[in-house]
Design a protein around this nucleic acid. Structure first.
Lengths: 186, 186
DNA sequence: CTTGTTGGTCAACGCTTGTTGGCAACGGTA
DNA sequence: TACCGTTGCCAACAAGCGTTGACCAACAAG
């Protein structure tokens, strides 16, 4: 279909540099010039390939949470599986931290965050919670706990949150998420 | 001691405008010029009274969580009292949203956040948890849930989190915070 | 070989930013 | 009255920003 272009390597280098910069600096301080410098090309190339800074961010912030199919596993382990999965994703993928950072001061980033929440976490909640009608609420509760730990551990770096082991975090957070998603009442 | 200066009104106007701008826009997009315009004075006045932009932020981001004395109330209600208190504070005080926004992209903001956490939330945890040795860990867990809900509800504005009633949020989050602070094991 | 398309650099644009120094008006004090 | 520190505005600075258009080299098609 789409034949490979000679510039594909450059495009990829730009995207990679953009992801790192957005993750490390947020939207405003991640300048097109610094991204271009990291990618080893001229700033004007970024404009040619991605239109403007917003377009670049849109391209660099595609998120796939790769959430597992929770229908296939015992309903009592959903919390642990989800928490564990999110810790993995956050440690492997700069984009998550990037979008979180950007979403806080930039409306496009916040909108992207809401989209991911609705399209990817929503269905999970709908699949495991008792009454599908309040699936969104339950998804939001679970998201609040997971986002909060990501903030504490990877963005604000509160010392005790950073020092806790992976297993410890999972052990404490899993019951919470499990309850938010499946408990009949608060 | 310190006699009132003729410029106290101006200084206060600057601080108020700064708090609003930092809360609404974050550190980078809240410009000294826009803050001065809001305060109805010249940008150079901001420099004279607060040195530079970082100094202004430092002055505008003093945080007092006004946490209640948890020793005085039944240990089983700590979770509900804290969650309820934080919702109040977040809805009344721009500074909290401001520092949260700034802390995400600015190191000074993150440091301020860590300071508040250690000095104000830490003692609370130490006062109610079984073993004082892991009070910091428990405080971090509680903070992660509270911060996460603040993000979802007041910063990212995930629709379901915004639409939930205050009582509903308290009902769901209180047992979580209670468990993080007082449960013997995860 | 010529021609047209693509990949890439360079220099500049208009604008905004934080920050600085000069200068005029004010208000107590002596 | 004359004086001096305070308060405020104004104009400018250097630096950095996103963005643009002209221009050159490499390549593919005819």
């Amino acid at each position: 279909m789409t034949s490979p272009r000679r510039s594909d390597a450059t495009r990829a280098a730009i995207l990679e540099a953009a992801r790192e910069r957005f993750a490390a600096d947020g939207y405003e301080r991640a300048t097109i010039r610094s991204i271009a410098r990291d990618a080893g090309i001229d700033p004007s190339m970024v404009m040619r390939y991605y239109g403007n800074k917003e377009g670049l961010f849109a391209a660099a912030s595609e998120i796939d949470l790769r959430l597992p199919d929770v229908g296939a596993l015992p309903a009592t382990h959903v919390g642990a599986v989800l928490v564990s999965h999110f810790l993995d994703r956050w440690e492997q993928d700069d984009v998550l931290t990037g979008v979180l950072r950007v979403g806080v001061t930039n409306e496009a980033g916040a909108e992207r965050m809401r989209g991911v929440f609705r399209a990817q976490l929503g269905p999970i909640a709908a699949g495991v919670c008792p009454d599908p009608a309040d699936a969104p609420r339950r998804a939001a509760l679970a998201a609040s706990q997971i986002l909060g730990m990501a903030m504490a551990r990877y963005v604000l770096r509160l010392p005790p949150a950073v020092e806790m082991s992976r297993e410890e975090v999972v052990a404490w957070l899993a019951p919470t998420v499990q309850r938010y998603l499946t408990a009949e009442e608060p």
